[in-house]
Simulated scan of single mutants.
Amino acid sequence: MSALDVDEFIQQNRGLADQVETFRGYWESEKHWQARREFILRNISDFQLPQQDRLLSLSMVWANNVFLGCRYSTELLDKVKDMAEGIEVEDAPVFKTRDEIMKKQQGR
Rank of each mutant, 00 (worst) to 15 (best):
M1H: 09
S2K: 11
A3V: 14
D5A: 15
D5E: 15
D5Q: 15
V6K: 10
D7I: 09
D7A: 15
N13F: 08
R14N: 11
G15F: 03
A17S: 14
R24L: 03
G25R: 15
W27P: 01
H32S: 10
A35E: 12
R36G: 00
R36P: 07
R37E: 03
F39E: 01
L41E: 06
N43T: 07
Q51V: 01
D53V: 02
D53H: 02
L55E: 05
L56D: 01
L56P: 04
L58E: 00
S59D: 05
S59L: 04
S59V: 05
W62G: 00
A63N: 03
A63I: 04
N64R: 04
N65C: 03
V66A: 00
F67D: 00
F67K: 06
F67T: 07
C70Q: 14
R71G: 03
R71F: 03
Y72W: 03
L76D: 04
K79R: 14
V80E: 00
K81M: 13
E85F: 07
E85A: 11
G86F: 01
V89W: 03
D91T: 10
A92L: 05
P93C: 08
V94N: 09
T97K: 10
T97G: 12
T97L: 12
D99G: 04
E100C: 06
K103L: 12
R108E: 10
